[in-house]
């Protein structure tokens, strides 16, 4: 990652490793997360996201390496680390004979919220996640999505300096998802740093300031969603329909643009152009056609999604992925 030195890293992992018997769930992970950002930790099932979150929150101990969370070493000062963090677990951890209200009220108490503040916030957040009506129900009687809502409510009430949210909206309906995303953004705007572990690409894309893609316990790439999308060669697609046939001259000119990686002729009057930086390149493409008096009938653009990034990078080996990133940076 470039330019780390002048940014404030609130979390830094140093060769962080966790082995379960012979499986390396997290393998020499080196990651740095900036103060006040939403950092999306993306990766396929079993990539090691949850294991990373659990180590950073001192719940499990690293086999090797370590991590610094807000200046504290998770190995040496776990008690100090725990004062800074809050966690929304992937599997809701609701105290097994309880109600949402009791769970949250007790959680807020342990996290040191004073009585008045606590009651106000528990009520507020229960309302926000649509669980106020069900606050006196036994947690056994809650649906999967409802349990998840109570789980994320813990962090929203606590407002820790550093919040780990592990698949915060899995099982939650679309309206609920958007509400929770807004609450997570608000938490960041109020000064918290958020580590979002997810394998929902859309969620990572709309929420994260930066994204790290994990695969087999290691970090493949790490950057803003924008940069990652642009890093896929020819990731953007532009389809152009012309009034007349395209000439070789114009095709040559287009091919000479470094952002364009390929042009497919669907038929002489329709082209499909694979390129990067679509916003900047499209005007140049239009200019090239108009200059040669080749009117454009229609133009359709599609951007790569984080899906494409994900498939692109997780399909590669770690070495290949890193090579690509370095090459991409050099080109850009």
């Amino acid at each position: 990652m470039s330019g780390d030195a002048d940014l404030v890293a609130i979390i830094r992992t140093v060769d962080l490793t966790k082995r379960f018997e012979d499986v390396a769930a997290v393998d020499n992970l080196n990651l740095s997360i900036e103060d006040g950002e939403i950092f999306g930790l993306l990766g396929p099932n079993g990539a090691g996201k949850t294991t990373t979150v659990l180590m950073l929150s001192t719940v499990i101990k690293p086999t090797n390496g370590t991590a610094f969370v807000g200046d504290f070493d998770v190995r040496k000062n776990p008690n100090d680390v725990r004062k800074l963090i809050g966690i929304c677990f992937q599997e809701p951890k609701l105290l097994w004979v309880s109600t949402p209200w009791d769970v949250l009220n007790w959680h807020a108490k342990v996290c040191g919220l004073a009585t008045e503040e606590r009651k106000r916030r528990v009520k507020q957040v229960l309302n926000d996640v649509n669980m106020w009506e069900a606050r006196r129900k036994s947690v056994h009687g809650l649906s999967g999505g409802m349990r998840k809502r109570v789980e994320i409510a813990k962090v929203l009430i606590q407002r820790p300096k550093i919040a780990f949210v592990d698949e915060p909206t899995a099982q939650i309906d679309v309206i609920g998802k958007h509400k929770i995303w807004n609450m997570i953004r608000q938490l960041r705007d109020e000064g918290s740093t958020i580590i979002l572990a997810t394998n929902e690409l859309y969620e990572a894309d709309v929420l994260s300031d930066r994204v790290g893609i994990m695969h087999k316990g290691g970090l493949l790439v790490c950057d803003t969603p924008r940069t990652l999308k642009d890093s896929i060669p020819g990731g953007d697609i532009v389809e152009i329909h012309l009034e007349k046939e395209a000439t070789d001259k114009v095709l040559e000119e287009l091919k000479s643009l470094k952002e364009i990686s390929d042009i497919a002729e669907i038929n002489p009057k329709s082209l499909r152009v694979y390129l990067n930086n679509v916003e900047e390149v499209v005007p140049q493409i239009m200019k090239a056609f108009l200059k040669r008096n080749l009117p454009i009938l229609s133009i359709k653009m599609s951007e790569p999604s984080l899906d494409d990034v994900f498939v692109h990078y997780t399909g590669l080996t770690i070495e290949e992925a890193q090579q690509k990133m370095i090459k991409g940076e050099a080109d850009g």
Partner: peptide, 18 residues
């Protein structure tokens, strides 16, 4: 025993307590 089996102790371990 129940907590350990249901991994609820992970939650206890993440709380700001020594």
């Amino acid at each position: 025993n129940m907590e350990v089996r249901r991994e609820i102790h992970y939650y206890m371990l993440s709380l700001p307590l020594s």
